[in-house]
Simulated assay, not measured.
Amino acid sequence: MASQNTAIQQLLNAEKRAAEKVSEARKRKGKRLKQAKEEAQNEIEGYKQERERQYRQHEQQILGSKGDMESKIDQTTHVKMQELEQNMAANKEKAMQRLLMLVCDIKPELHENYRA
């Protein structure tokens, strides 16, 4: 009977150690997964930053800086405004004469849908 109790006790102890080992293995696996996830996230962030830097560099080479673009836009806008003002000054009198002619020269006529 005593040998059975010791065998059972040894079996229970072995089962307990096995459960502890499994638990430790699960914890290590969880740590490894968390570490791998963090490393992957860091790698993704690094790649993203590198691509963003390359994009900005490429954009800078092709388009120039934003200040240059703004100054070009301001310059073209100023030139177009001057052209419009010159055209307006040149055609102002003609436009006024045309408007006055259309408003003042009235020819009374019956409407085409009027039935006598």
Rank of each mutant, 00 (worst) to 15 (best):
S3G: 05
Q4R: 13
N5D: 09
A7R: 10
I8T: 10
I8A: 11
I8M: 07
Q9I: 07
Q9C: 03
Q10E: 10
Q10L: 10
L11T: 09
N13E: 15
N13M: 11
A14I: 02
A14E: 09
E15K: 12
K16Y: 09
R17T: 12
A18R: 12
A18H: 08
A18S: 10
A18M: 04
A19V: 01
E20R: 05
E20Y: 04
K21Q: 09
K21V: 04
K21E: 11
S23P: 00
S23G: 03
E24D: 12
A25S: 08
R28G: 01
K29V: 04
K31P: 00
R32I: 09
R32G: 02
R32V: 06
L33W: 02
Q35R: 15
A36S: 10
K37I: 03
K37Y: 03
Q41A: 15
Q41P: 00
E43C: 03
E43W: 02
E45L: 04
E45K: 03
E45C: 00
Y47K: 15
K48G: 02
K48L: 10
Q49D: 08
Q49A: 11
R51I: 04
E52R: 03
E52F: 02
Q54T: 02
Y55K: 09
R56D: 07
Q57R: 08
H58Q: 15
E59A: 04
M69K: 14
E70H: 05
S71F: 04
K72T: 06
D74M: 12
T76V: 15
T76Q: 11
T76S: 13
T77P: 00
T77S: 13
H78P: 01
H78I: 13
H78Q: 15
K80N: 12
M81V: 07
L84S: 04
L84E: 07
E85Q: 14
Q86F: 06
N87F: 12
M88Y: 14
A89Q: 09
A90V: 05
N91W: 02
N91E: 13
N91R: 08
N91D: 11
K92W: 11
K94P: 01
K94G: 04
A95N: 06
Q97W: 01
Q97C: 02
L99R: 03
L100M: 13
M101I: 05
M101H: 15
V103E: 15
V103P: 00
I106Q: 12
K107R: 13
L110M: 10
H111Y: 04
E112Q: 07
N113G: 13
Y114V: 08
Y114L: 07
A116S: 12
